[in-house]
Write a protein that binds this DNA or RNA. Sequence first.
DNA 1: GCGTTTCTACTACACTTGTCATAGATTGAA
DNA 2: TTCAATCTATGACAAGTGTAGTAGAAACGC
Lengths: 127, 127
Amino acid sequence: MARRPRLSKAELELMDLIWERGESSVRELQETIPEKRRPAYTTVQTLVGRLEEKGAVRRSRRVGNAYLYEPAITRRSTYRRLIDELVEVFGGSATPIVSHLIESGKLTLEDLRVLEREQSKRKDGAE
Amino acid sequence: MARRPRLSKAELELMDLIWERGESSVRELQETIPEKRRPAYTTVQTLVGRLEEKGAVRRSRRVGNAYLYEPAITRRSTYRRLIDELVEVFGGSATPIVSHLIESGKLTLEDLRVLEREQSKRKDGAE
DNA sequence: GCGTTTCTACTACACTTGTCATAGATTGAA
DNA sequence: TTCAATCTATGACAAGTGTAGTAGAAACGC
């Protein structure tokens, strides 16, 4: 029911599939997961059930004897929440996070420049 | 024992105090926590115990009948791990994280420019 | 219509996390 | 030396998470 429920790691991964595929059955979701780390059918079923309880997905319709599920929250708001929580750990400040990203090589100077340009442009448009 | 153990939220907050204060007793840690959200003494004791099991702190010495604990891992490597895990959720890409930070207003264009300049400088120095 | 397949509903269970209580050991002070 | 204060050791417990099994309902193929 929560607008931005707290999702666990496994739930998040499942949501990614659901956002990607849209309306899906438990079977489809399970088979979409690469075989190497594919959990049992009922494991996926349990996770989808929990996602439903949390208001992250809803049943859209029925096909055969199976339910189809669709997202009830957006990827955006979910990721947003994740990041907000990380920022909180960092005492509310975002720059240390970016510094770490740079140091770990995950974010290059070039990435920064692109982001900066994009942002300048957006700002221009807005004014 | 792990070099970069996985710490829970409460454990992380406690580590922050320990990094801040250095060598500390359970009592000192507990009393350092703002009264509004200060947990019971034994709660802190349990958390410190778990941190010790995880290899995040170690007993440094004894004062009176109490132990003092000191960090056994660095803040840096710990934060690094947190961020690496978030990046993983984002499919290994860091730029969406920065985009979100910008959108949420946690990171300004000015922050970006500063970070970029710092990074350019560091790179110059390295070459 | 009836068996086979496929779903859902429900239960289970070990591990982690946040929270704390109780019991017994250690100290410090009178 | 003995008692109150303070620690440590240990146990407990509810909620959340990852994982899966079983029972019974529903649908599909013939």
